[in-house]
Amino acid sequence: MPAQYASPVLFVTVYSTQFFVTASMGVVFAYLADLQDRYELSNIELGLIASVGFVAALAAQLLLSPLVDRGHARSIAWISVVTAVGGAFGFVFAHSAWSLVGSRALAGVSFGLFGLVARKALIGQDISGSGTKVGGLLSCGVAGFITGPFIGAAMSGIAFEAPFVFTGTVVAVLGPIAVVQISRSPIAASPVDYSHLAALLRRPRVQAAICVHVGVWGFVGMFDATVDRYLTDVGLTSGEFAAGLLMIGIPLILLPPHAGSLAERLGGARVAIPALMVFTPAVVLYGWVGGLWSFVLIGLAESTTESYSEMGSQVLILEATGVEQAAMGTGALEAIGLAMAAIAAQAGPPLYAEYGSRWLFGGWGVACGVLVIVAMWRLRAVKTPPKGMKLAH
């Protein structure tokens, strides 16, 4: 392996930049009510600001991921850094709903693209060891997203614009260093195009990974859209809610590198499918939360199994793509997950209002059970059972 790829500077700068790129996305969730009051936004405008970042991330991943595999990682990395800084400072100078939407869209483009180029650089020209590296990137992303609202809340006393100035400035400093390190990393390039993406989506391992990813991200979208209302109805205070969210996020910060390494050793399917099986009853139990500690215990079970499900599906994709199409494959997986999360987020609140938490989460638990069956059926079409990354191209 080339010496420059082993440099700790690559890992430190890429992981740190990923943390602050996702933190800048998370900051806004601590400000939604403030944004609505400050700019007199309607509920529709507020919902658009909250969701447009994920839509922009989805579009950017689908449209630009083949370019990363074609060898244009440096250009895409610069786009991701510039849009991150622009999105953060856009909230500083915004004066209308549409300027807020535009700023959020820029942040979403960065959120969608930086992970693509970071994974490609971390994987390099050797697929072995990528489970741990990609898991570390996921940990940093989750940590950033969880920390973002706390940055917003902590700095709001200084000025409304303070957290946006802070995250934008940090990315402006760290981002160019990360781009330089990404540019120096040996990246496996191949002449892929959108027809290759269609062919990739027909592969059984990819379809199985999508089933697992849809199960996880459908829950994430539903959870994010309803958990505040649900736990308020249960009787939790805002402080208890924030503390509970922080506690249940710990496995998603600590476990992905281990989960990725395990999936690489055993094969993605041997981690992803059992994890989704255990994830399913944890989803169902969310409908029976009665207080803070039941929320924390159920949440810890869910986030633990989510870590292994997510990393198992990522490794399944890498088994199918190898190094040459890694950006395109993982980008498509994430885009499908974001689309599923957006659909679930739209459907969750009215379903909760109409049927309650037990039917809502119980219904998605049934859906996850069906996805497990479909994933196992698709994996039966794989001629060589996956026994680890090295045998799975």
Score class of each variant (00 low, 15 high):
residue 376 M to N: 11
residue 283 V to C: 14
residue 221 G to P: 06
residue 193 D to P: 05
residue 288 W to T: 11
residue 205 R to Q: 15
residue 101 V to T: 05
residue 126 D to G: 00
residue 328 M to S: 15
residue 386 P to C: 08
residue 325 Q to L: 13
residue 305 T to L: 09
residue 209 A to R: 05
residue 305 T to S: 15
residue 187 I to Y: 10
residue 71 G to W: 06
residue 178 A to K: 12
residue 173 V to F: 06
residue 275 A to V: 02
residue 357 S to D: 14
residue 272 A to F: 00
residue 291 G to A: 12
residue 171 V to P: 13
residue 13 T to R: 09
residue 320 A to N: 06
residue 243 A to R: 07
residue 50 A to L: 06
residue 163 P to S: 12
residue 82 V to P: 10
residue 209 A to T: 03
residue 181 Q to A: 14
residue 266 L to D: 00
residue 294 S to T: 14
residue 176 P to Q: 14
residue 114 F to A: 10
residue 226 T to K: 02
residue 381 A to L: 08
residue 356 G to H: 10
residue 98 W to F: 00
residue 200 L to N: 15
residue 226 T to E: 04
residue 306 E to Y: 14
residue 245 L to R: 06
residue 270 R to S: 01
residue 206 V to A: 14
residue 262 L to H: 02
residue 73 A to E: 15
residue 306 E to K: 10
residue 65 S to Q: 06
residue 299 G to W: 03
residue 315 V to F: 04
residue 207 Q to V: 07
residue 381 A to V: 05
residue 234 V to T: 02
residue 268 G to Q: 01
residue 97 A to M: 03
residue 160 F to K: 09
residue 237 T to C: 04
residue 198 A to R: 12
residue 340 M to R: 08
residue 322 G to S: 05
residue 223 F to C: 06
residue 161 E to K: 11
residue 136 G to T: 04
residue 84 A to C: 13
residue 294 S to P: 10
residue 290 G to V: 09
residue 266 L to T: 00
residue 217 W to E: 07
residue 265 R to E: 14
residue 273 I to R: 01
residue 36 Q to V: 09
residue 85 V to W: 04
residue 66 P to M: 11
residue 178 A to Q: 09
residue 81 V to Y: 05
residue 199 A to L: 12
residue 336 I to Y: 10
residue 377 W to L: 12
residue 369 G to H: 09
residue 390 K to Y: 08
residue 42 S to E: 10
residue 349 P to C: 10
residue 50 A to M: 05
residue 194 Y to A: 15
residue 97 A to R: 03
residue 214 V to G: 07
residue 336 I to E: 07
residue 217 W to R: 06
residue 371 L to S: 08
residue 312 G to K: 03
residue 189 A to C: 05
residue 256 P to F: 04
residue 241 F to T: 00
residue 312 G to E: 02
residue 101 V to H: 01
residue 56 A to V: 01
residue 370 V to M: 11
residue 164 F to K: 12
residue 181 Q to R: 15
residue 188 A to M: 13
residue 23 A to I: 08
residue 267 G to Y: 00
residue 186 P to Y: 12
residue 189 A to N: 09
residue 213 H to E: 08
residue 50 A to K: 02
residue 155 M to K: 07
residue 165 V to Y: 08
residue 8 P to H: 14
residue 371 L to D: 08
residue 247 M to Q: 05
residue 287 G to C: 13
residue 188 A to T: 10
residue 210 I to K: 08
residue 98 W to N: 05
residue 224 D to E: 12
residue 181 Q to Y: 11
residue 353 A to M: 11
residue 294 S to L: 12
residue 22 T to L: 13
residue 17 T to I: 02
residue 311 M to G: 06
residue 24 S to P: 06
residue 250 I to V: 13
